[in-house]
């Protein structure tokens, strides 16, 4: 297996890494960088548990992304959304709305929420639901997750004013 020297910026820190051609971003984050907040759910891009942000606000499935293709890119995981001990408004809204049960989909859901609000700061309920497609939650029926993303959008709009 050929190897690639890449530089990956994750949550603000820069890492010079040598990665095998077949290693996914998910594997590199979890196994090489010891960042377990990005979860393996299916490995086939169906469940969204492995979602991370590229360049701040675009959510991708890290299980479908070869790490070698991410040279020079900036990655943000759920843990990296916290700034100076302050949770991201989406994370805070998940807490306020009890939008978490087993929590395994949560880091990916939070990342999805951040991404969809970046694209559409004032989404309708239907737009939130469609924006969350590709992320599976088996615990909540999505009710409180949708409420949380909606509330986060509103909170962020107020903060931006």
């Amino acid at each position: 297996m050929s190897k690639h020297a890449i530089t990956l910026k994750v949550n603000g820190a820069s890492y010079d890494l040598v990665v095998a051609s077949n290693k996914t971003l998910l594997e590199v984050l979890r196994d090489q960088l010891n960042m377990p907040e990005t979860k393996y759910g299916c490995g086939t891009g169906e469940c969204g548990a492995c979602s991370v942000l590229v360049e701040g606000d675009v959510a991708i499935n890290s299980c479908l992304t070869l790490a070698a293709t991410m040279d020079g890119r900036e990655i943000t995981t759920a843990a990296g959304l916290q700034q100076n001990g302050e949770l991201h408004p989406v994370q805070q809204a998940f807490i306020d709305h009890s939008a978490v049960q087993c929590g395994y989909c949560t880091p990916g859901m939070v990342v999805k929420g951040v991404s969809l609000l970046a694209k559409n700061p004032n989404p309708t309920e239907q737009e939130i639901r469609e924006g969350l497609e590709g992320s599976i939650c088996r615990c909540t029926g999505y009710v409180k997750i949708v409420e949380a993303v909606d509330a986060a959008g509103k909170a962020m709009a107020v903060a931006a004013d």
Partner: peptide, 21 residues
């Protein structure tokens, strides 16, 4: 009362430790 769940902060951050972690 809808108290804050005991495990929720680590879950929204992804720092909760599951068996695979």
């Amino acid at each position: 009362k809808n108290e804050q769940r005991v495990d929720i902060r680590s879950k929204v951050l992804g720092t909760a430790v599951y068996a695979a972690d």
